[in-house]
Design a protein around this nucleic acid. Structure first.
Lengths: 349, 349
DNA sequence: CGTTTTTGTGAACGCGTGTTTATAAAGCTA
DNA sequence: TAGCTTTATAAACACGCGTTCACAAAAACG
């Protein structure tokens, strides 16, 4: 690796001014006359001079870098949705003049991995961080928040009052469930079940509660036998549905899945048991996974605009870092019902 | 954002030694007696001290950060393979104690975007960078290499002699094409076509040449009518195949696609024309896209181990950065034929 | 023209850490 | 014990840049 390039003292010498003046030119100070500025800019352009980032940061500037931490037990890498979010964060940050340091944490019980993430903050490599896939109140994240680091988190339980340094972006799971149940109800479904997500992640309980509330709202009976445990992965959907079918439980007429991946898994299990969607079971997913429009049957789902969500979160984080925003009210993103082919109407006879 | 935390002078004071000694302890110098070392470590642990990265870098250390630049005209974000590579790079770098700064470049003709990428190097935010999806001899990358920055590039044409600071990882397209043609030939196919990739990317011409060589090797006729232009996206595969079919060209018995995405698109076009794979056309793809095992028909393809490839590239880049490796011989990764359901044997009558 | 205000700029300090150099203390040799 | 080598540590400098401060020159004012 080549040695460090030209520096500001050299630029100053070449332009016949002091280093202070060079700095003033670069940082757009007002008290430098146009001709001097131009003279300096000339030299800067000529020598392709770019200030050393480390030196700038050390001298009191921000790093203009945010950390992006993708937490998962396994297949974040293969998860298209996570990558959609990643791309959105990177591009939005870039637009705002920020850099993104990305890290994958396979397992939050891996102490080395967690320490390594904390060190990124303590080393001041970043001005703030975004966490995706974190469990509710992940201790090490709470520690970082308490230490005063600026953090954005997706999908976190709220404590009622806003907490400093903690920006949370949530899904409107209640609204989504309401739409799902409303739609199924309108189609004539009465025996509606749910395949829950990971109860350690905020959206798990949140979706379940939303489901209960929506069912009550439409005066529908909530049969515990139609409430399946699960996770947020395709595999968990497959497992859970397989077990359910193996036990010979009576099938509801419709079922709402924790998300689309879960729905894919569940549908695969159904097919392996000779059951068809939506003939034998109507299915609604969550997220609008890119594949949902291309599966057979195409999946009816509650779409989330992940790119928009991450754009908003990134922008908010940056504003907080730059001191332009001071509030910490959480925000949540709408679910939109996308009707495809995985639900059928019930004909009363 | 909170102010900077405790620093080494404070640690020195608390441990009753000089700052130099603290530094020696941290950097594992040998000339510090065990008791002094322990005393200092005690204080460091107690106050959770972590050295400031910017200061370390400024004082001559490496940034321990590599840049990851994903170049694409459009949908990198949705491209599962790119994300597979990304994950592999991040995790391998992390294992080696390196951080990854990620950036997406939608369009290399966007001068601002390109300048912004170059600045990341000139600002010394990174010790080196990896480029994915770059065209052959992308000028701004060549400039960076010429400037002495350490760069890893995927899929680049070789100049014969190794070039300093330029580590290239290639696909064994010739070997892959050989396997594909061999397999089709064994199945009895004689009229074999190819749907080419983007000719600006190294793999485009490379695959085409590999195809020609393999066909010649098996003594098969190369009919220009069976050579379709294309790109590396599903959309381009769809377009190219649609146009081909619309023109009423006679179908070969088998066709090799630039990659699996292209194959998906081409198959979709075939289906829309009432044609079935492999009944009416046998198809082989490249890459072994995660979806290839799940489509109908499941796609026969030439698998590339992207995770391994990126792991090797990342490790090599890091070794070069740390001066442990000095050679610049390119390496390429094998293709493995994965037989699935998209090719059928030809029965001679 | 003397005085005050404004404008322009360089010197100096600080950011936090690595490393070299000098020095003091301790250990060793004869 | 005198003289020399080794060991331990602190002081000092360097890294590259932002920013404050002081000061000089120029402009405005009376």
């Amino acid at each position: 690796m080549k040695k460090t390039g030209i520096d500001s003292v050299e630029i100053a010498r070449l332009a016949g001014v002091s280093r202070s003046t060079v700095s003033r030119v670069i940082n757009n100070y007002s008290n430098v006359p146009p001709e001097t500025r131009e003279k300096v800019m000339q030299v800067i352009r000529q020598y392709n001079y770019v200030p050393n980032a480390s030196a700038q940061v050390l001298a009191g500037k921000r790093t203009r870098t945010i950390g992006l931490f993708m937490i998962e037990a396994g297949h974040v890498s293969a998860d298209i949705l996570t990558n959609l979010m990643l791309a959105s964060i990177i591009e939005n940050a870039s637009t705002l003049g920020y850099y993104v340091l990305t890290r994958i944490i396979r397992n939050t019980r891996d102490e080395d991995a967690v320490r390594s993430v904390k060190e990124i903050f303590y080393q001041r490599r970043i001005d703030g961080g975004i966490f995706i896939g974190a469990a509710n109140r992940e201790p090490f994240i709470e520690e970082l928040v308490a230490e005063g680091f600026m953090v954005g988190i997706v999908d976190q339980e709220l404590s009622g009052n806003a907490e400093p340094n903690r920006i949370v972006a949530n899904f409107d799971n209640h609204g989504g469930m309401r739409l799902a149940v409303e739609y199924l109800h309108k189609l004539g479904h009465r025996r509606i079940g749910v395949l829950n997500g990971d109860m350690n992640r905020c959206s798990g309980p949140s979706k379940y509660e939303g489901f209960l509330a929506a069912m009550r709202h439409y005066g529908l009976e909530i049969d515990p036998q139609r409430v399946l445990p699960g996770g947020f992965s395709e595999e968990s959907g497959y497992q859970s549905m397989s077990r359910f079918l193996d036990e010979g439980m009576p099938l509801p007429s419709a079922m709402i899945m924790a998300n689309d991946s879960v729905a894919f898994g569940a549908i695969r299990a159904l097919q392996e048991h000779g059951l068809q969607v939506p003939r034998d079971l109507s299915v609604i997913g969550f997220d609008d996974h890119p594949l949902s429009s291309r599966t057979h049957p195409a999946l009816t789902t509650l779409k989330v605009d992940f790119a928009d969500m991450m754009g908003t979160l990134t922008a908010s984080l940056v504003r907080h870092i730059e001191g332009e925003e001071t509030g910490y009210a959480p925000f949540s993103v709408r679910n939109d019902l996308i009707v495809r082919d995985s639900c059928r109407p019930i004909i009363f006879s």
